[in-house]
């Protein structure tokens, strides 16, 4: 089957609605189809990969650890919009340390998160063939 450039755009907070959780289910399936997958985190979507999530008070499953597994599925292009972080008083230090192992480079651990500004994000989106937003 052909390989296409897929981008999944995450715009919503991880809890409060089911979008983030069900988006992650789509992302994991796309890995099985060996597509060129990237993720975008914009607006409240940046909270999906925030450090130290604790859901004990809301009785919902904390699925944030799943993002750490994405690197093992060769999903390692996670574009985070700089302005979205800034608007929420967040920096890269507030995000989880998401990495992948580059088997072509002696399994060196490399960061999956790429901080890009709004204009760059638009450019990256324009290069995609399939953009699915949640």
């Amino acid at each position: 089957m052909a390989t296409k450039k897929f981008m999944f755009v995450n715009r919503k907070a991880p809890y409060g609605t089911v979008y983030a959780l069900e988006s992650l289910e789509v992302v994991l399936i796309s890995a099985a189809f060996e597509q060129d997958v990237s993720l975008a985190f914009i607006d409240d979507g940046v909270y999906q990969i925030a450090k130290g999530q604790d859901t004990t008070g809301i009785g919902q499953k904390n699925f944030s650890a799943t993002y750490k597994a994405l690197g093992d599925y060769e999903i390692n292009k996670l574009y985070v919009e700089k302005e979205s972080l800034e608007e929420r008083g967040l920096t890269l230090d507030d995000l989880m340390d998401l990495t992948w192992e580059d088997e072509d480079d002696d399994y060196e651990e490399k960061p999956s998160i790429h901080l890009v500004d709004r204009a760059d994000m638009a450019g990256i989106m324009a290069q995609q063939e399939v953009v699915i937003s949640f």
Partner: peptide
């Protein structure tokens, strides 16, 4: 059916449109 049908649909189609 499964989510694979969405990905396969994205691969086969010229355009994928999301209504949400």
């Amino acid at each position: 059916s499964g989510l694979g049908q969405l990905i396969e649909g994205g691969i086969q189609a010229d355009r994928t449109l999301v209504f949400g």
